[in-house]
Design a binder for these strands. Sequence first.
DNA 1: AATTAACACGCAAACGTTTGCGGTAACGAT
DNA 2: ATCGTTACCGCAAACGTTTGCGTGTTAATT
Lengths: 341, 341
Amino acid sequence: MNRKRNTTLKELAKELGLSISTVSRALNDHPDISTETKESVKILAAQMHYVPNMFAKGFRSQKTNIIGVIVSNITHLFTSTILKSILEEAEIRGYRVIISESNNNEAKQSEMLTTMSQFGVDGVLMSLARKTTYVDDALRILNRMPLVLFDKVSSKIPCTQIVINEEEAAFNAVEHLIGLGKKRIAIMKETENSYNSEKRYAGYLRALNQYGLPVDEKIILSTEDISLVQGKRLANILLSMKNRPDAIFAITDNAAIGAIKALNKFKIKIPEEIAVVGFSNSINSTIISPTLTTVDQPGDKIGRTAVKYLIEEIENPKNDLLTKTVEIKTNLVVRDSSFKA
Amino acid sequence: MNRKRNTTLKELAKELGLSISTVSRALNDHPDISTETKESVKILAAQMHYVPNMFAKGFRSQKTNIIGVIVSNITHLFTSTILKSILEEAEIRGYRVIISESNNNEAKQSEMLTTMSQFGVDGVLMSLARKTTYVDDALRILNRMPLVLFDKVSSKIPCTQIVINEEEAAFNAVEHLIGLGKKRIAIMKETENSYNSEKRYAGYLRALNQYGLPVDEKIILSTEDISLVQGKRLANILLSMKNRPDAIFAITDNAAIGAIKALNKFKIKIPEEIAVVGFSNSINSTIISPTLTTVDQPGDKIGRTAVKYLIEEIENPKNDLLTKTVEIKTNLVVRDSSFKA
DNA sequence: AATTAACACGCAAACGTTTGCGGTAACGAT
DNA sequence: ATCGTTACCGCAAACGTTTGCGTGTTAATT
């Protein structure tokens, strides 16, 4: 197929009997050009469907107006919600977005980072892969272009970081359970030192302390991957205890749902016997029965904020490399799994 | 911040005492260059972290190695699953991906299409916005670059189209219900003429006909947006009938789940009194109780196939513009909502 | 009438890369 | 000694755009 080539400034210039530079300036509303000339140029440009060649443009200006985004898994609703808002906000501000997945693979993440840089993006938005320890690539990127981390972040990388108030959110969730009269609250968390898990655990502990409840190691459960099946498994462990907990705070909706499924199987009354609270406000939390009380994370706000800060840094380069943490507020959505009738 | 500039061929050439062209050829393994020269060039290139400037490259070759993707809503699991495989497959083949959302807005979709073209993508992958009627923009794009449609397609656009076997899938789903001994099967579909809804409805009708079951307009329900709440509403309508159906085929998992919720509320036994089958195999289908029988759509295969065909067309431009439909097989996942004990 | 200032436009370089073409050296064959 | 061949490499143009600088015209000021 003979794909038509795009019209160029040269063709417009020839058609109008003007020089290329005049046409360029006319289209860019340069003050040196008379109003009539601008008019005629713009009219012809529209007629001939002129569109500036982004490559020539970026080639000269060394600016691509593309921002790169690296996430671990695009199919997680929370992630795609963030991506949606990133796309929207970026478009509003005149940027395009290239998305890559690391699949929680650190090597892949490094590779993406360098190809992003090679590709000439103006800046990068990244949510770290789990267990990221090697941050040299990120540091190397940092003196080439701005980088903003979100959700999964690391204090080892001196840049702007957009996170939710993990600790406070967990505190509020546990406080809510305590408010229901629960005295023996189990937690399901991750074994590995993930930023999010650590913070939420800290919030859990603070709530127990503040309300004078004892911390019992036996009902502090950890798992490698905090999934639905693991939630089931851990719930079964809790049920097998002589001294059962009267509430479960799961660090993840999936684990909470797994727990509910296990409790349902044993006809445990939720929330009377055991209340359950999750984290994320995924759609599943309204599908499961009883519906799940959970922490709503405003993904769209995270995305928007991240884009805002990144573009700010792109357009106003700073000389300092410092860690700046921006916290986005969450709020607890109370549903049947912890509803006090 | 003083962002470091990338090293260029010129710098490499100066360092090595060679010409720019020789360095370029050496890096591209041109046969004219001696093995030793290639070696030394490549070593220095690695040392100096040389990365080719994509813009200069694309500028010359008029090839960007970027493909544009337009979907209606990135947060739908089915969509993000497709996107995931598109990202993977594209990366394997050396392409980057730019994603845009139309939000089911036809005007937005047209706009995205033109900015994609303006941006110089090598080809476009698109799933149409609902109720797309104006296809002129797509046609205009088509003689600039290859376009491949997937999932939501239209016969008005002469290009390669990747779809699932909607009709057959629906047929199989209804046939499955008939196999359970169900004789009065309701359907929940969309009012508007969406490609998917039409096809699935056709499959429903064919199954009824083939097994000699009467078609009763009263239990053929349509709704504008086929969502969870609408599923509930329509189920309530069915329950209010004197002559209730003994099965429901919902064109969407969400509607099916809404129906189940309504049935559960009225303590209808599923599947004994009324069986339910959905479409999509969303995660929710395993969360709801009873778990939902549904049609599994292999999103990853759709994405991969779409990329394959698009890149094929990019790299081997054809002279003909014809509609070529590629069908991806689905399969029915039988769960508790239709399980014959 | 001469000088100046403002205005409108053109020339040409530059961005980094690829590539057709031409050139040089070395070497074997005549 | 000359020719042809091969192996390597450099020159320069081209891609489309922006932009500093120069230039010519006109109108206003002295």
